[in-house]
Nucleic acid binder design. Structure first.
Length: 576
DNA sequence: GCCGTTTTCGGCCCGACTGTTTTCAGTCG
């Protein structure tokens, strides 16, 4: 987002300070945490911190007191922070980086630096290979091996995988786990249950009266390459494709509390536990207890836990401590759009352009999904790499769809286009060609490297075009591959509201564009949304769930999304 | 370093697993 450069910079400075203090053995762990909490606050801020500093409202921010307010002001005004420069003198840059290795924390990092003068991951790898770590107090051969493994794991996986990869694996593992007769209930947990756009590892929770048999069954899962740890409540494994899976087993009485706890997010849980304490309770993964007497109050279901805390049930996708707890306490949570509320996909490519399946095949699959309409959108003429349609081929495609609509009368096939927005903001087809489509998606596919002002103008001009209904993948980001275009997303959102243009939540797992934060911002400003999978093969129509997940993470309800409307309502809106 | 339904000082979420120990420190989520 255009407003967040300084916010990100300040957050990363505070995170860095926390790491350095940690390694240097800061005696107050709460001071360290204060920096991390402050970093998070700034990171999640929707407003530009520079504006807040100018208006002297820094002290109004939660978790920012006198000390940190001063530091924030210094960074905004001078671009750097003396305190951090001082800290950096005490610790070479590369030492902090060592914290990224799983299994290494601040204490051991300091030992490695003090005793072996290790200041980089490369140097650490060498030291492990030479067997030098085992000579240190508190380190042994196993630790040395684990650290080496941690380095290799980090090198191989670079951390996180896309949501769909984790989800598909997670569902398969759940199916396997359920085959054990000892398993009563089981569920995905962690960031996967919250449906974040990328996932670090797969968390699974099981309730069982026989934890040992459950764990034994789990480690028999055929895709497991390595068992990292195996205990009576927690087992961690690595799958062949390098995904880590953590399984936790609890008793029935704690299942709800444990599911709540292991679903997170960490920030949501901290806030929830604080709320519990304020109300005279103690909340842990074992249940909600009376703080004084220790009496068990709730824990079998998540609903019970939230309800006893005076909250309405909070859907996993909302649990990020972004205001959901306050909303739940006032009964003001949105009724989120459901995964089965979608009546049709409006962004699908066929063999007319760069898709692999015929329109008829797409229609058949859409019917299997229970859709009442399907929009087939192919690329426009100038996108030659994607076999974009000339005006003549547009006519032919419309003819084919007309015929198919006669043949299939229990689903409506809509002929759309994903029309290119040229660098000057004009569209790739004339107005009279665009009128022939049932609806028009406009999208940027070329000239990504424009400056912010011109790119924003380009998109806004497209939205002002009377034939444009939707903007596809508005920011153009590809997760892990490509940054968003330079874009003032707030201006784009405002223009969408003004022109009545629907912004897409592109459900393709590499895109998820708009993302959850943009969606939330759009919702607050009264924008409406369209979901599209951007499928190029029929099996990708199933990506819709990731679009719905993003919508839910952005607090959307049914009424905010055009794909939840009946065919009649949709046709009325599109003027078909 | 922040914060206040235990308010301006004394708390700050809590438990499991591993490895190196012989009762516990370090790390993780």
């Amino acid at each position: 987002m255009a407003t967040s450069m300084m916010n990100t910079q300040i957050a990363s400075i505070f995170y860095m300070i926390a790491d350095i203090l940690d390694i240097l053995g800061e005696e107050s762990p709460f001071k360290v945490r204060a920096y991390r909490v402050a970093a998070q606050t700034i990171e999640n801020l929707e407003e530009d911190i520079e504006t807040i500093v100018k208006q002297k409202r820094v002290l109004d921010l939660p978790h920012i007191g006198e000390g940190l307010a001063k530091k924030i002001t210094e960074i905004v005004e001078t671009g750097h922070l003396k305190y951090l420069e001082e800290l950096k003198k005490k610790l070479p840059e590369g030492v902090v980086e060592l914290l990224e290795i799983p299994g290494l924390g601040p204490k051991r990092v300091l030992t490695l630096y003090r005793k072996l003068n290790i200041t980089s991951i490369t140097a650490l790898k060498e030291a492990c290979e030479k067997g030098m770590l085992r000579t240190l107090d508190g380190f042994g051969e196993t630790t040395e091996r684990n650290i080496l493994r941690g380095i290799q794991l980090k090198e191989r996986t670079s951390g996180r995988v896309l949501l769909n990869v984790a989800y598909e694996n997670g569902v398969k593992i759940l199916e396997y786990i359920k085959r054990s007769s000892h398993v009563k209930e089981c569920s995905l947990a962690g960031s996967l249950r919250r449906m974040k756009e990328t996932i670090g590892d797969i968390d699974i929770l099981v309730s069982s009266a026989n934890t040992k048999k459950t764990m034994d069954h789990f480690v028999g899962y055929p895709e497991i390459e390595q068992i990292l740890s195996k205990g009576s409540t927690k087992t961690s494994v690595i799958l062949r494709d390098n995904l880590q899976v953590d399984l936790r087993v609890v008793k029935k009485k704690s299942y709800g509390a444990a599911l709540q706890y292991f679903t997170g997010s960490k920030e949501h849980n901290v806030a929830l536990r604080n709320l519990a304490i304020r109300k005279g309770y103690k909340l842990s993964e074992y249940g909600l207890f009376d703080k004084k007497t220790g009496r068990y109050i709730a824990g079998e279901t998540e609903e019970d836990v939230y309800s006893k805390l005076g909250l309405s049930y909070i859907e996993p996708e909302l649990r990020e401590n972004h205001g959901e707890i306050e909303a739940a306490s006032k009964g003001k949570l949105p009724v989120l759009v459901g995964y089965n509320d979608i009546k049709g996909d409006l962004h699908v490519h066929s063999t007319w352009s760069d898709g692999s399946d015929s329109v008829e095949n797409i229609v058949k699959h859409a019917k299997l999904l229970g859709y009442s309409y399907i929009g087939v959108t192919d690329h426009s003429k100038s996108l030659r790499v994607a076999n974009g349609l000339s005006e003549e081929r547009v006519e032919k495609k419309i003819e084919e769809i007309k015929k198919l609509n006669h043949r299939y009368n229990d689903i409506r096939i809509l002929c759309g286009t994903e029309c290119d927005i040229k660098p000057d903001g004009s569209l790739d087809y004339d107005k009279k060609v665009l009128r022939k489509f049932d609806f028009v998606y406009a999208a940027v596919h070329t000239g990504f490297k424009m400056d912010e002002k011109n790119m924003t103008k380009r998109l806004i001009k497209a939205m002002e075009h009377e034939e444009v209904d939707f903007i596809a993948h508005p920011t153009g980001r590809m997760i892990g591959l490509r940054e968003a275009y330079n874009l003032d997303i707030e201006q784009v959102i405002d223009a969408a509201k003004e022109t009545g243009t629907y912004l897409e939540i592109n459900a393709f797992p590499d895109r998820l564009d708009l993302n959850d934060a943009h969606v939330r911002l759009g919702k607050e400003k009264g924008v409406r949304f369209v979901l599209g999978t951007d499928a190029h093969m029929v099996n990708q129509l199933a990506f819709m769930r990731y679009g719905v997940a993003t919508a839910r993470r952005g607090w959307l309800e049914k009424k905010d999304i055009i794909n939840t409307f009946t065919l009649n309502e949709l046709e009325r809106i599109l003027g078909v």
